[in-house]
């Protein structure tokens, strides 16, 4: 919890000093605007996705298809509204339905067919965009349904409505994992799947559930993302978002090997990532280039968390202190 907050504070300090206008807040039409509000609003989708991703990573897996699921949900909603002429409720239900289906698909492949998570979700990551193209017939669908637009642009208590969605999902997620034993089971399965199965935990169901929930979160994020720009573009909604989400979760301290997970920390991590993104945009770094520095950050963070890297550092350090210490090959030093 401490490190991501510190990093966030440092980044904000940097922006305060060097990025002009980053800290300006305006009250327009009774609502707040400004870079920091942008971070919250744009960050909503990263926060939503990383909430789901936290659970998947805690089971020891990963979901590479989150961006694609966002695109699927966005295009399905837009299509239902514009092409098929359904109402808002039907559009949202349809979008979330397809997102749940996508999550269930991943979940079944990983939990019941034992396909490695990377491969299973990679299939949907790539093939899913093809499906989204089919749904939108290769077109960018613009919409102006008031409720749909409100999702990503509306305000609630002067703050973007998206934050309300995030809060709602977070509370739901927290209740589902921490007020039931699902959270304990997820951590157990992620930490040691065989032992958990032997202890009677329904490892498959738990894993399935994690992917299902991630699908739902991605679907919501997709609705928010397409609502933001009042259109659905199957090629671009959620592009590269899987990296942001994984990054947010890892920065938040949930290990990629699975086990303990921290929902709040993932939210902080997501805010950190979004601040990074917004800072880059504010400093005129294009959206296309932005993934590059982020990739460096995620590798750096993982290096810091990697036990091997730490041990190298420690060894360096201790060797300076006492040169007499014998060299131990780190990977094999197990009795």
């Amino acid at each position: 919890m401490f490190w991501p907050l510190l990093a966030l504070a440092l980044l904000l300090l940097f922006d305060y000093l060097f990025t002009p206008g980053f800290f300006r807040l305006e009250l327009r039409g009774g609502n707040l605007y400004g870079s920091r509000i942008d971070v919250l609003n744009q960050g909503a989708r990263v926060m939503l996705v990383s909430l789901g991703m936290t659970l998947v990573i805690a089971t020891g897996g990963v979901d590479l298809s989150v961006g694609t699921v966002m695109a699927l949900a966005g295009t399905v909603a837009a299509r239902l509204l514009v092409v098929d002429g359904y109402g808002f409720i039907a559009a949202v239900s349809g979008a979330l339905g397809i997102a749940l289906l996508a999550g269930a698909w991943n979940g079944v492949l990983v939990a019941y067919f034992n396909i490695q998570p990377i491969i299973a979700t990679l299939i949907l990551m790539v093939a899913g965009r093809g499906v989204a193209q089919l749904v939108s017939d290769g077109q960018i669908i613009n919409f102006n349904d008031a409720s749909m637009v409100f999702l990503g642009n509306g305000h609630f208590f002067r703050l973007p409505f998206t934050l309300t969605i995030v809060l709602f999902v977070f509370v739901g997620m927290w209740a589902l994992t921490r007020q039931t034993a699902v959270g304990l089971f997820i951590e157990a399965v992620g930490d040691n799947p065989v032992a958990s199965r032997y202890a009677g935990v329904n490892a498959r169901l738990v894993t399935f559930l994690a992917y299902l929930l991630t699908g739902l979160c991605s679907g919501l994020a997709g609705l928010v993302a397409s609502s933001n720009i009042k259109s659905a573009d199957a090629n671009h909604i959620g592009l590269y978002l899987e990296l942001d989400a994984i990054l947010a979760v890892v920065v938040g301290g949930t290990a990629l090997t699975g086990g303990r997970f921290y929902l709040v920390n993932s939210l902080v991590g997501a805010l950190l990532i979004q601040t990074l993104t917004t800072t880059m945009y504010a400093r005129n770094i294009s959206a296309d280039i932005a993934p590059m520095p982020k990739a460096l950050v995620i590798i750096a963070v993982c290096l810091l968390q990697s036990e091997k890297a730490r041990r190298y550092l420690n060894q360096r350090f201790t060797r300076h202190q006492s040169a007499a210490l014998p060299a131990i090959t780190p990977s094999r030093a197990q009795p």
Binding site: Q179, A199, V201
Partner: peptide, 13 residues
């Protein structure tokens, strides 16, 4: 707690 909890199911924490 794990095995006893598992026998009670995920919902009865």
């Amino acid at each position: 707690v794990l095995a006893l909890q598992a026998s009670r199911g995920p919902w009865a924490r």
